[in-house]
Design a protein around this nucleic acid. Structure first.
Lengths: 335, 335
DNA sequence: CTGTTAGCGCTTTCAT
DNA sequence: ATGAAAGCGCTAACAG
């Protein structure tokens, strides 16, 4: 049987000092000056015994557990989800925190239970994440620790992490312009999910605003705008297919990679070569973007950075309240 | 300011009983029979006050935190990762547990820290997961709670969750045979990552054993076997491309979806139609499988089920030690 | 500079 | 049938 846990008392005993002294030394208290000798003895004892503080006991006293909760609507759907989680975990690890991951499916009942589960465990902060940007309902219980909204938004909680969609939109266009393309550009997907909630479309509006501003600054305009009610490969395929009947575009600006994926298929079937005949740019940096041939040039959703930023924010390392994370440009072969 | 937490003492006070009574009633003790009246009063008080037990305090007493650690080598790479996590979270939630997710990158140092972080927080169990099946090193500290290996293996810890690769292999072949195809079948990818470690190849061997057994039972044999040193789309593309120069296959059995994805591209370029000219079956059920046209028929890696099974196992709901999770057949349009 | 003491909120003997 | 009291491991006043 594994021997009993070693406690502070054991350490103090071996060091020949009181638990108080041991506690102060091990937690690195500043104001008190215990002898250097005492320090040495305590550390020696702690190491020799393999002492590990009992976080539960400490939490009871200090109300700090060095753990934070990441409450997400969905966890498995996209790479985006795991990116957020990973970023959060990484930042937490660095600060010697741990993260509890909870999933709610967007169900208010599960949301409530998740918050309770987290609060019961005395987490030091909670992050509400949404896999697709949206206004998230937060259960109406008083949360007495910092709260940050990740890729989501809520009235009561101002601390927010969002991708910089406006700049991302600009960059997508810039890519095309830099390649000398200012004409024959088709926009695919613009009004997607317009019904899915104000905030979601608010984010998309920002992306579009960036796109339109950059377009007009370059003296360019879309030769055509195709709308899609969802942003799946099928849509991209069908839309591009019918586009190609009448038009010979020079570039496709797709609002996400899945649309672009479908577009590639249609382009391939009609014998158009990417990027020689038509260039393609899109958003997200899904896994598929790198699988396509040629690789798809895309404006990435900075999942990991967002996750990291969220925990930094929740741990109070950051003075500002709204953080916009830049969307990296992934240059591959499609433009 | 949020009012102070309500404690058991508050509940007891309001109910006009002792904390002892309140504790026993709220934790649902069996042996003691407090009056029905007492029960009612305590519950009423708890509800009215919005009482929530303090898990840290309880943990100090009982050594149970209702939380388990999921320590994984990688978290963000594939959908597989998030599937495992999601399954684990779901099963945990059902049992009113919470899961701490930790990542190690396969680095022994981080592995050690992760285990310590988990143990410090008195988790009730730990799950070691690997994103690609492999023998995982577990830090050499005594872990005094149940341990289960998820998609991985370790000498010291017998409790293991693995996909049923053998049966999956059989099923892949069966799909082809049922479609009347027993000739002109090409295997793509067989010796991949043979160097990546005994256990990984052990798993692949099982898949291959299933494939070969089913083939010979059907009186079929491969017309060709193409090996790939990794299983990325590029490989699938190149291999299939050169295959098509000399051969006109009837079916491609790819060892994962990414290979199949590359194969699709080569097939498309040479004007072969899937599934009319050549059928394709593969493994994993990656996101791309559903994006391809026609949809890729594939034998799924049962991530979520595995994650769920792992927490059930670690919570001791299960008497056996090695659990093989069936790999579901995803029938789409490629055969 | 160091030790004694008193809890944090809960469960659990042991009395009553 | 119910309550008093001890104590889980730790930290923070307060003495010495």
């Amino acid at each position: 049987m594994p021997k009993k846990r070693v406690t502070l008392a054991d350490v103090a005993l071996r060091a020949g000092l009181s638990t108080t002294a041991a506690s102060m030394i091990l937690t690195g208290k500043q104001d008190t000056r215990l002898s250097a000798d005492a320090h040495a003895k305590v550390h020696e004892a702690a190491n020799a015994l393999g002492y590990r503080p009992n976080v539960a006991a400490r939490a009871l006293r200090t109300d700090k557990t060095r753990s934070i909760a990441l409450i997400s609507d969905y966890v498995a759907t996209t790479r985006f989800a795991s990116g957020l989680i990973r970023g959060a975990i990484a930042a937490a690890e660095e600060a010697r925190y741990v993260v509890l991951v909870l999933e709610t499916g967007g169900d208010p009942n599960r949301e409530m239970k998740a918050v309770q589960a987290a609060l019961d465990r005395q987490v030091d902060g909670v992050i509400f994440a949404a896999m697709r940007a949206r206004e998230v309902t937060v259960p109406d219980v008083s949360i007495n620790v910092p709260v940050v909204m990740l890729n989501s938004k809520n009235q009561r909680y101002p601390l927010t992490i969002l991708p910089d969609e406006y700049q991302g939109g600009r960059d997508a266009v810039r890519l095309l312009v830099e390649a000398g393309i200012t004409e024959g550009i088709v926009l695919i997907g613009h009004n997607a999910e317009a019904e899915q909630g104000r905030f979601r479309s608010e984010m998309i509006s920002k992306r579009l605003a960036g796109i339109r501003d950059a377009m007009s600054e370059a003296g360019a305009s879309f030769v055509k705008e195709l709308s899609a009610w969802d942003w799946e490969p099928d849509q991209g395929y069908v839309l591009t297919q019918s586009l190609l009947i009448h038009t010979k575009p020079r570039a496709l600006l797709c609002l996400n990679d899945r649309l672009a994926f479908g577009a590639y298929q249609a382009l391939g079937e009609r014998g158009f070569s990417v990027p020689k005949d038509v260039a393609v740019v899109s958003f997200d940096n899904d896994e598929i973007a790198s699988y396509l041939r040629p690789g798809l040039t895309t404006i990435a959703l900075p999942h990991e950075e967002m996750g990291q930023a969220a925990v930094k924010l929740v741990l109070g390392r950051n003075p500002v309240s709204l953080v916009k994370i830049p969307m990296p440009i992934m240059r591959r072969g499609s433009v």
